[in-house]
Design a protein around this nucleic acid. Sequence first.
DNA 1: CACGAGACCTGTTCGC
DNA 2: TGCGAACAGGTCTCGT
Length: 274
Amino acid sequence: MPELPEVETIRRGLLAGDACTPSLIGQRVCAVSILWERTVAYPSLQEFANLIQGTVVSEINRKGKFLLITVDERFVIFHLRMSGDLRMRRESDEPSQHDRLILHFCSGWKLTFTDTRKFGRVWLTPDPQTVIGKLGPEPLAAELTNEIFHEMLLARSRQLKPLLMDQSFLAGLGNIYTDESLFTAGLHPLRVSSTLTKKESSDLLAAIRLVLAKGILEHGSSIDWVYRGGNFQNHFQVYQRAGESCLRCGAPIQKFRVGQRGTHICPVCQPERG
DNA sequence: CACGAGACCTGTTCGC
DNA sequence: TGCGAACAGGTCTCGT
């Protein structure tokens, strides 16, 4: 599920709650269940359980694909990786087969971290920088200007797709939103970052922001068996559309591998040479 | 520094 | 129908 728009959707849901679910804010932790030990990246299982006990949730923030939940003077930081999901459930609700960690609240609700593939991780730390300190800038932040972004691209000599997916370069893009952004910008995934003109660079940043904003507006993408109610999958221009017609020019969408990741382009709209 | 391969995991889909 | 291979929204580590 989770790239920036999906994590942001989860954050907003936990923050606001809905008709059937309370907000995560204000919940007091009365116990924790750790069902897959490797889920806890830091500290030890024992310390994690001891330190979180009795704390109260006061804030939910996001940086890139990380979700930061403030509990008293510390932060519970989740990374959902490939298949993680977070939701509020009643204590009386049936446990899910893939629950990996559960925060039990005094209110009778619980926050369940469900993660089929077990790649997801959680940290509990007083200093978030130890976990998210190496992340690049938020693509949606106003401080990231066209000039800065162009300089960032010129400072590297890397293929655009792996560079955009590098979280230390830019925080939040994954496979789907990278492919969609490159298509929107009309740039080939293998273009070398240092060759981009000022215009191409600002077009790319605008494309990234447009695609991410649409993704958030549609509550993220719901693919395969993991369904959260997002709708962005119905707006894909190239992702998962190999062989289908480009919605802009009609040429068949191509799929190939870039750095072990399935990559989708329109060969006409995204020529190899700029 | 840049890049590819392998590892970490489970579940679904595809090809024979 | 059955079975193995390939593939999936991510990231880390290692070798070249």
